[in-house]
Simulated scan of single mutants.
Amino acid sequence: MAMADAAAKRGTSAQNGSDILVTFNGVQKTYDGEILVVKDLNLEIKRGEFVTMLGPSGSGKTTSLMMLAGFEVPTHGEILLDGRSLRNVPPHQRDIGMVFQNYALFPHMTVAENVAFPLSVRGVSKSEQTTRVRKALDMVKLGAMENRRPGQMSGGQQQRVALARALVFEPQLVLMDEPLGALDKQLREHMQLEIKHIHESLGITIVYVTHDQGEALTMSDRIAVFNDGIIQQLDSPTGLYECPRNSFVAHFIGENNALPGIVESVSGELCSVRLASGETVQARAVNIGGVGSKTSLSFRPEKVHIEGIGPDHPNRLHGRVNETIYYGDHVRVRMTVAGSDSFTVKMRFRAGRAVPLPGEELFVAFTAEDCLALDPI
C-alpha cells in the first residue's frame, strides 16, 4: 500500500469512528488478588493507527499489552480483536505480530530462518516462505544479510530482523514492547523514523509500549498516558503537549514549569491565581476546584519570555537567574521565580544575543493562554 493510501485509510477510519480493531472493555488485572495493576481499562484502537501506551514503570502499560498479546489473562473485563473476544484464544492464534526489547531471535538460525519461523509454524510452503522473507528483509534494508546469524549483527540490525519477523506473516496487528530500549540514542532515533515510515507505507495497526515520552511524541497517532493502572489522558501528541488535562500528564510529557497557588476568582475559561510570593497571574482554568482551592500552574519553558516585557504585562513575575546552560540551538536559563528555584526558560541562541548571567534579576512573562491551572501537585 502506498504511503498516501495508508494515510488516507487512517483518516477515513478516524472520521467514521466505526472501524475499530482493538477494544479493551472494563479490563482489570491483579496478580495477588488485592492490588490492581490495571484498574479499569476502556480503550478503542482503530485500524491503521499507531497507538502508544506511555507511562512510568509499574503504571500498567506493559501488562495491558501482554493481555492483548495473550501472555497475561485479564482478571475482569474483555478484550476484543476485530469484534471477536480473545478470551481463551491462545497467543499463536491471535494473528498478532510481536517485537520485544531483547529481540528474542534464535541464535542458531540464520536471519532468513528467523524471519521464516512464523511462516513455517503456520504451514506456509517453502517457496512462499522464500518470497515473503525476501520481501520482509528488503523492507527493513537487510536483504544482503539473510545468511548471517544474529550474533554477527549489531543491535540495530537485530532489531530490524525482529521487526521483519513480526511483519512477515502479514498480521492485522503488531505489538511492540520497548523495542528500542537497548539501542544508543542516535540509533534509537533513526529506528523511530524507520518504524514510523514502515507503519505509514503498510497501513498496519501498531500498539507500542514505551516509557520514553520523546519516542511516543515522535511516532504516534495517539498516546495513552498511563499512571497507577489508569489512562490519565488519551490524545494526539500535540493535544498531550499543548493541553494536558492534569498535572501528572503536564509533568510527564516534555519539560514543564509548575507554580503552586490559590484560585482567587474564576471568569469563564480563565481564573486568577495568587502565588506563594503574593503575585497574581491569569491562567486557563483547565482542572481546578472552586474559589479558594489549591492549584498548580503549568507552562512550558519555551512559552516564557524574558525580553521586551513592559510593566503592564498581566503575567509579569520577578525572578533571579541561578544558571545558564548552553544547548547549541538554545540556552536554558534556570531561575528562582515565585518561590520555585527550578523555574526554566528556553531562549533561542543567536550570536551576539545577550545571555542572562547568574545572580541577575529580571522579569519573566507568559500569556494566560499558555498558563494552565491544573490539580495541585
Rank of each mutant, 00 (worst) to 15 (best):
A216H: 08
G229Y: 05
S220P: 10
P244K: 02
E215K: 12
Y241H: 05
N227K: 13
T238P: 00
F248A: 00
L240F: 01
V225M: 05
C243W: 10
P237W: 01
A224E: 12
E215H: 02
S220M: 04
G254E: 08
H251P: 01
Y241E: 00
T238R: 15
D221I: 03
G239K: 11
D221C: 12
N227R: 13
G229M: 05
A216P: 14
A250K: 10
S247T: 13
P237G: 12
L234S: 13
Q233P: 13
T238I: 14
E242H: 02
L240P: 06
R245N: 15
N246Y: 06
M219A: 09
S236F: 11
N227T: 02
I253K: 10
G239E: 07
I230K: 09
R245L: 13
S236R: 11
S236D: 11
A224S: 13
A224K: 03
I231E: 04
L217C: 11
T218F: 05
A216G: 06
D221S: 11
V249M: 11
D228F: 00
I223K: 05
E215S: 00
Q232A: 05
G229A: 13
D228S: 14
S220A: 14
G254K: 07
A216S: 08
Y241M: 06
I223E: 01
I230N: 04
E242R: 15
A216C: 08
T238Y: 14
C243N: 14
L234N: 06
C243R: 14
N227I: 02
S247P: 01
F252A: 01
F248Y: 08
V249T: 10
F248R: 12
Q233E: 06
D235L: 09
P244F: 03
L217A: 07
Q232W: 10
A224Y: 11
S247R: 12
R222Y: 09
S220V: 01
Q233D: 13
F226E: 12
N227G: 00
F252P: 10
T218I: 05
D235M: 10
L217E: 09
